[in-house]
């Protein structure tokens, strides 16, 4: 997914002279083809996130469209004030690409595990927040990003993910939910790479006779409120599934929506990471299993919740 995203920056740079790339201190050879073709629009600016974002804002004020990439935690935690003030307050078309969204950097520990960045970015006025599910959806989103007014945060999930959105799927539209499955008393709503696990969980549940609808939300902000409400209104149980702290991410966004739209009687099961720094290492998969976010864990929790949900 990361490769798809960065390759698309190069594609966009070819299409549009306003597009440029800013990295911090990324791996050797990152976007070398772009650097070769457009050296004046390739910046590798060092481990200085505050300057990186301020500089991107300054370039955007001069009419450019900077795509900024570094590790998600450093990008969103270290430079939060710059993102809020330099980028969002000025409503600039700066694109922030956060590498290792969620638990991708599991073995590297809490400094690198991005468990709160969707909440941080979602809280900022005017920020669009996306978490595509796979490389093909990433490419489609990147293509659409060129014309998006205002700032954008892009969560990069782990590369080589199973394809949920095949090539040739409808054009990416910011703020539009993707209906993966549309029938069932249980409504699963997921984002990013969790949508693939949600789909597998839906298969497991179907084997037990429980049909699930599945909405994949590549855009966490703004929410596709109408589609969500339309599906939630006929569900016995709504389940949010995300690789993110329970505070402030997709589940929180849905809870806010349901309260605002008076759907408070609809039971909402929020499957997410606990409000805690992760104490284990291992792999992304092993941590997701630990927190009940692999297909089996999701299916188990849905089954239990359904038992106590009103019919």
């Amino acid at each position: 997914m990361r490769q798809a995203s960065l390759t698309m920056v190069h594609e966009l740079a070819r299409q549009d002279k306003r597009v440029l790339f800013i990295g911090s201190d990324l791996g050797s050879g990152t976007l070398e083809p772009l650097r070769q073709e457009f050296p004046e629009r390739f910046f590798m600016e060092g481990i200085a996130e505050a300057n990186l974002i301020g500089m991107a804002a300054g370039l955007a004020m001069e009419g450019f469209i900077p795509y900024v990439n570094t590790i998600a935690t450093f990008l969103t935690r270290r430079a939060f004030e710059q993102i809020a003030l330099d980028v969002c307050l000025h409503h600039l078309p700066v694109r922030l690409i956060g590498s290792g969204g969620g638990l991708v950097y599991a073995p590297l520990g809490p400094t690198h595990q991005a468990i709160d960045e969707l909440a941080l970015m979602r809280s900022l006025p005017g920020m669009t927040v996306v978490a595509p599910s796979d490389a093909s959806e990433m490419r489609a989103m990147m293509k659409a990003s060129l014309d998006l007014p205002g700032p954008l945060y892009i969560r990069l999930g782990k590369g080589g993910d199973p394809v949920l959105m095949p090539e040739g799927a409808p054009d990416f539209v910011f703020g539009r939910a993707v209906v993966v499955r549309d029938l069932g008393p249980v409504l699963l709503i997921s984002t990013g790479v969790m949508s693939d696990r949600a789909l597998k969980a839906a298969d497991l549940l179907a084997q037990k006779g429980i049909d699930c609808a599945l909405l994949h939300l590549p855009t966490v902000k703004p929410l596709d409120e109408e589609t969500i409400i339309q599906f939630a209104a006929k569900a016995r149980l709504v389940v949010s599934i995300e690789e993110h702290s329970k505070i402030g991410g997709l589940g929180s966004a849905l809870a806010e929506l349901f309260i605002d739209r008076d759907l408070r009687l609809c039971p909402l099961l929020r499957l997410a990471l606990p409000d805690a720094f992760v104490e284990n290492y291992g792999s992304q998969d092993s941590l997701l299993k630990r927190f009940g976010l692999q297909p089996e864990g999701i299916a188990d929790q849905v089954r239990k919740a359904l038992e106590s949900a009103p019919s």
């Binding site: 910046f43 300057n51 301020g54 804002a57 300054g58 004020m61 330099d86």
Partner: peptide, 8 residues
Amino acid sequence: PIGVGMAL
């Protein structure tokens, strides 16, 4: 930082 970006 913004000024650096503008100058660039």
